[in-house]
């Protein structure tokens, strides 16, 4: 069953990356999807990241009760864990729920109402027209959201630390600006690009092959979130093992 589905997924991707009929129309769709995936998720990702940054700062401060460890280390740990793990992974998991379910139900509804058949009858490569813009938007917008998430997590940490008295703003800023390894940002971007691809392609696959009606569209949507989340966590492990 797994191999059948995986084979179908690869064949669908082959159709997705076929040469577009008219780039002009595809560009329009790409920008539309970028707006939907990126701008549409800004507030959600922003709120989650800010609170995670604040909570992380307080928890790190709670666990580092020692006169031998400088307080600035709290900012440093928050920065590195936000860049390497929390921002890419948690943003991706949240987006799998928000964007993934939306993509799956959108394409699934088009399938059950014969809109995909209509595209194919016209001679349009339906996987390309429907899925390629979503994948391209996903691999460009998820990294941008992750960058935003990192920034807001650091600001959240600053505010949370200051409000709770866990760390002074001066110590925190010293921590997040000291001994920075730029490679961690590369790891975060690789993760974000791969997670963006997983979210959009897995959800599109689930929607594209829906058979039935509204009930099956809903089931496909749930399935797409579950499979995307598991795939994101598995990919997270592999990327971390390979790159760090």
């Amino acid at each position: 069953m797994f191999f059948t589905n995986f084979g179908k997924y690869l064949l669908l991707l082959k159709s997705v990356f076929r040469k577009p009929e008219k780039w002009k129309i595809y560009w329009k769709e790409i920008f539309h999807e970028m707006n939907s995936i990126g701008v549409g998720s800004l507030i959600l990702v922003g709120i989650i990241s800010t609170f995670i940054g604040a909570v992380m700062t307080m928890q790190i401060a709670f666990q580092l009760v020692s006169d031998l460890i400088p307080n600035s280390i709290i900012g440093q740990i928050n920065r590195d864990s936000s860049i390497l793990e929390l921002s890419p992974t948690i943003s991706a998991l949240v987006l799998a729920g928000k964007v993934g379910s939306s993509i799956s139900s959108q394409i699934g509804s088009m399938r059950v109402t014969e809109q995909i058949d209509a595209l194919e009858i016209m001679g349009i490569n339906a996987p390309g027209y429907l899925i390629l813009p979503k994948i391209l938007a996903g691999i460009t917008m998820v990294p941008m959201l992750v960058i935003l998430s990192i920034g807001l997590a650091l600001i959240g940490g600053l505010v949370g630390g200051a409000l709770s008295g866990a760390v002074t703003p001066a110590d925190y800023v010293t921590g997040i600006t000291g001994t920075f390894n730029g490679y961690t940002l590369w790891v975060a971007m690789v993760k974000a690009i791969i997670f963006g691809f997983i979210i959009t392609s897995v959800s599109s696959y689930q929607g594209f092959y829906v058979q039935g009606g509204a009930l099956e569209v809903g089931q496909a949507s749930t399935k797409s979130v579950v499979i995307s989340c598991i795939s994101i966590l598995a990919a997270d492990y592999v990327i971390t093992a390979v790159m760090l």
Partner: peptide, 23 residues
């Protein structure tokens, strides 16, 4: 194949049972 069918498909018009208009 898919590409070879495109010229014929451009001469096909189809009305679907539920109209299948793009929402």
């Amino acid at each position: 194949n898919f590409e070879q069918r495109i010229p014929i498909r451009q001469h096909i018009g189809m009305l679907f049972q539920n109209s299948a208009l793009f929402d």
